[in-house]
Every structure is written in C-alpha cells, then in structure tokens.
Amino acid sequence: MPLTQQDIDAEIAAEHAAYLKRVAGGAPVEHHPRRDYAPYRSSLLRHPKRPPVAIDVRHDPELVELSSPAFGERDLSALDNDLTRQHTGEPVGERITVSGRLLDRDGRAVRGQLVEIWQANSAGRYAHRREQHDAPLDPNFTGVGRTLSDDDGRYRFTTVRPGPYPWRNHVGAWRPAHIHFSVFGSAFTQRLVTQMYFPNDPLFPYDPILQSVTDDAARRRLVATYDHDLSVPEFSLGYHWDIVLDGPSATWIEEGR
C-alpha cells in the first residue's frame, strides 16, 4: 500500500499529541525536532538510537568546539547576496528582500558570521542535477547566496520567492515554499542549518519536515513576517526573519574576567 497523506497526517497528529502530553507531564519544551521523527521517512535509518554524550563546556574552556571558523570579505563576491543578478538576465518570479538579525540565546548580535542560503526557483525547481521535479529550470537563477552578518548582526538577501515542490515522502507530498539557511556562530557548537518559510502557506499542516518541530511556538519561529518597511518600492516585497543560534558559546569566559 503506498503511503498516503492521510497516513502521514495521522502520524503527525500522534507525534504532536505525544509531545503535548510530555510537556503537560512536566517535560521541557522541545525547541528542535527529534532526530527520530517517523512521518519524515528519511529519518528512519539516519538517526542515532543511542542518546548523545553530553559535554558540559564549562568544565573546559579550551574545547576547540568553543571557537569557530572565520569567514571574511574575501570569502564573498559583491553579488553573492543578490540572487537576481548572478546571470546575464533577470530570473522569473516575484522579487523579494529577506533580512533579519543573527542573535544568540542572550539576544546579542552575532557579528561577522557566514550566512548561506539555497532555494528552488519560482517554479519550485532546484538547479541540482539530481532534482527530478519537471518544473522548468530558469537559466537566470541558480538559487545560491551568501553574506556576512554586519555589526548589528543583520543580514540581507535579494532573491525571488521560491515555489513549493513535490517530493517522494508519500503520495501527494509537497514541500511548502522555503529558503534553506546555513549559519555559523561564534562557536562551532552554535552551528545551525534550517529552513525559512513564508507566512500563511496552506501546505504547513501537511509537511512532515515543518511538523517535525512539534512545539507550536518553535514552529512559528521558522516562518518569516511580511515587512512592508523592507519592501523596496517598485522592486521587491520584504520579509523579516531573525535567527537565534542555540548551543553554548565561549562568551561566559569573557564575562568572568
């Protein structure tokens, strides 16, 4: 029997109910997905069964994981944060400006760190050779960008709004439109790869990847906000999306001095 959307919906609902029950029983809020999330079938054979071994970084300020690789201006070229100007022509689609701040758990700006994005084109097709969705490729859009966060932690990209696309998790599986983000912090422990979504997408409840974040408030933090102040007159629509890095950093050492 091929797996249907109804099957996946039932599994998503069961996972959500189980999470609410855990929290009601006093378990902590889960900000991140569990790696073992069956509705996303690719996770079945790719999640560790043993719990991770915890390392309390306060015991050892010398851990290499408390530092992070450096990236600088020479790791970028001028048009890397404008995905609409990387080819001779203009890409097809609705131009958007995506901007926000890179923050740590204390709400402080994370400065000078690499922010990378990749995405499908406006038709929902990736410029990746193994992509099998037969939506049109756009010769004027690759869908890859990078930038450094500024002194205020701010990043900014110009791109086109990606389309939703089908995938083969189950029959009728469609990913809501999203932009993939890869972010470095001031410590390797803060490394984050995630996805940004667009407000009010009707595909949200059907998508096992978004729903793998079982906490409702946490899931909302993956959805950008339309921001009219970011919209550029006669050019683009603006979306605001702040990113908060998790994981311990070394800043407590500085504070202790």
């Binding site: 809020v29 900000h31 991140h32 997905p33 996303y40 690719s42 996770s43 926000g100 701040r101 923050l103 740590d104 758990r105 204390d106 709400g107 402080r108 990749w118 499908a120 990736y126 990746h128 193994r130 992509e131 993939h180 890869s182 984050l192 790869v193 995630t194 996805q195 990847i209 793998s212 974040v213 408030a217 946490a218 899931r219 909302r220 933090r221 993956l222 959805v223 950008a224 906000t225 921001d227 605001h240 999306w241 702040d242 990113i243 908060v244 890095l245 998790d246």
Partner: peptide, 22 residues
Amino acid sequence: TRIDTTGPGRVPPTPSHTVGPF
C-alpha cells in the same frame, strides 16, 4: 519572527531542519 530581545531571560532558539537532498 522579529525576535524580542528586550524582555528578561533567554531568547528561544530557531529550530534546526534537515539540510535536505539538494
């Protein structure tokens, strides 16, 4: 998704997601 950094306490983190196939 505009994170309020004015309140007391720790700011909740952005959830992780898979890197995906592409």
